[in-house]
Every structure is written in structure tokens, then in C-alpha cells.
């Protein structure tokens, strides 16, 4: 198991966001987290990245208890990539500088080497001509692809994607999803919170339905999305279909 979450609990004041959640992720596995707004998908990803401190439970990454207070979060985060819903690129840096920031400043790699690696990735995702541009000059889909590259150049063991297409225009969603599909081909382990049920069905090995801070139901996409066991999963999917999103 690459990632094991056991009995994870997180509260914000009186609101219990994660209520004893269990989830495991195998190496090379792609897991789609689905569920209503507020079901805890984003919070779980932030907890795994140690951006949010959990209130109880354990998160193991690669056999190491990363929720032990003796663990240095910066070291853990080098193994985990996180991509945000609204890209969070640094607006005062060019695309290339955004990508090479961590490799040069955190990993102390020579600038030329980091640049070569960044250009290789940009070439692969068709954005080589944007290397010198500033993020605000790019479309949302281009920015999100740069953000994914920025996470990937650190060679993470695990990539967390937090509703990465939610802020995009429909015609730009495809280019980001294609990129994620390519990463699955590379064998990248990914946990993605998503509202794109169709995409979850295509790319995920397993779909986990979060409800009230727990994984209520999980399994192969065809089963969870096509023939859910739990009544609440059925209700959730019915609402999605009603909204024309499946």
C-alpha cells in the first residue's frame, strides 16, 4: 500500500468534516473521490499533504506514519504532488520559473538541468512555446496543465488532484483530462477529487463515494456509478444525472 488512511478525523469548530475515514491507495492505482460539496474530498487531500493537521487517526505514506508530529512535513511533501482547483500558479513568475522553482530551490538541482527537464515536460504537453509567458496570459486549461507539470517535476510518488477541472470552461476540460489519462499510462499513482463522473468512470481504477466524512461505498467505477449498493450513493448520482453531468 502506498497510502493508508485509518480512522482519519478532522473538525472545523463544530463541523465534523472527516469522521473516521478509511482509505487505501495501492501503487499505480488511480482513485476517484466523488461526493457532494462538503463531503470532505478536498479536506482529505489537504490532510494527506499535511497542509491541514488531522484531529485523530493515522495516515501512512510508503510505510511511514506521516501524522507523527516528529515528521518534517517538508520532507513528506516532496513525495506528494498537489494540484489545486484554481491552479495557484505564481503570477509574478514565468511558466518556466513556476516549474523550476522547487527543483532548484528545494532539490538544489542545477538550473540548466531543471530547465531542460521542465522544457521536456512542456514539450510533451504542447506548451513549450509558453515557457516564457506569465500565467495570466494563458487560458485556464493551459494554466492547469502547467500546474500539473509543476507538481510532476518533483517526481512525486503520489499525485493529488483537487477538482482540477472545476474552474475550467467545458471546451478546456478535455485537454486537462487527456493529460491525466496520459499520466495514468505512465503508472502515476493518483487520488483525484472530481465532479466529472464520466471521466471518473474512464480513468479511475476505483471510485470512492464520500458521505458525511466517511467512505460510504467504493469499488470499480462500473459498479459504484452503474449499480450502487447504498441508497445515499443512488441519491447523489440521481442528482448528478438530473443536472445533466453524467
Amino acid at each position: 500500500m502506498l497510502l493508508t488512511c485509518t480512522e482519519v478525523r478532522k473538525t472545523f469548530g463544530d463541523a465534523v468534516v472527516l469522521d473516521g475515514l478509511d482509505l487505501t491507495v495501492d501503487e499505480h492505482e488511480v482513485i476517484a473521490l466523488i461526493g457532494a460539496s462538503g463531503s470532505g474530498k478536498s479536506t482529505l487531500l489537504r490532510c494527506v499533504n499535511l497542509l491541514t493537521e488531522i484531529d485523530d487517526g493515522t495516515i501512512m505514506l510508503d510505510g511511514e506514519d506521516i501524522t507523527d508530529p516528529r515528521v518534517n512535513p517538508d520532507v513528506v511533501r516532496r513525495k506528494i504532488g498537489l494540484v489545486f482547483q484554481s491552479y495557484n500558479l505564481f503570477p509574478h513568475m514565468t511558466v518556466l520559473d513556476n516549474i523550476t522553482l522547487a527543483p532548484t530551490k528545494v532539490r538544489q538541482r542545477p538550473a540548466a538541468e531543471a530547465k531542460a527537464q521542465a522544457m521536456e515536460w512542456l514539450d510533451r504537453v504542447g506548451l513549450a512555446d509558453k515557457a516564457g509567458s506569465y500565467p495570466d496570459r494563458l487560458s485556464g486549461g493551459q494554466q492547469q496543465r502547467v500546474a500539473i507539470v509543476r507538481a510532476l517535476v518533483n517526481s512525486p510518488r503520489l499525485l493529488l488532484l483537487d477538482e482540477v477541472t472545476s474552474a475550467l470552461d467545458p471546451e478546456l476540460v478535455g485537454e486537462v483530462l487527456t493529460m491525466i489519462r496520459d499520466l495514468k499510462g505512465d503508472g502515476m499513482t493518483m487520488v483525484l477529487a472530481t465532479h466529472e463522473m464520466g471521466f471518473a468512470r474512464q480513468v479511475a481504477d476505483r471510485v470512492a463515494f464520500l458521505d458525511k466524512g466517511r467512505v460510504l461505498e467504493q469499488g470499480p467505477p462500473a459498479q459504484v456509478l452503474g449499480d450502487p449498493v447504498e441508497a445515499r450513493t443512488r441519491q447523489f448520482l440521481a442528482r448528478i444525472i438530473e443536472a445533466g453531468r453524467l
Binding site: 478525523r9 463541523a15 465534523v16 469522521d19 473516521g20 484531529d55 485523530d56 458525511k212 466524512g213
Partner: peptide, 8 residues
């Protein structure tokens, strides 16, 4: 919420 009295 389900667990009003959470015991750490």
C-alpha cells in the same frame, strides 16, 4: 453529526 462525543 454522528459522533457528538468523540473519544480521542
Amino acid at each position: 453529526m454522528s459522533s457528538e462525543l468523540h473519544r480521542p
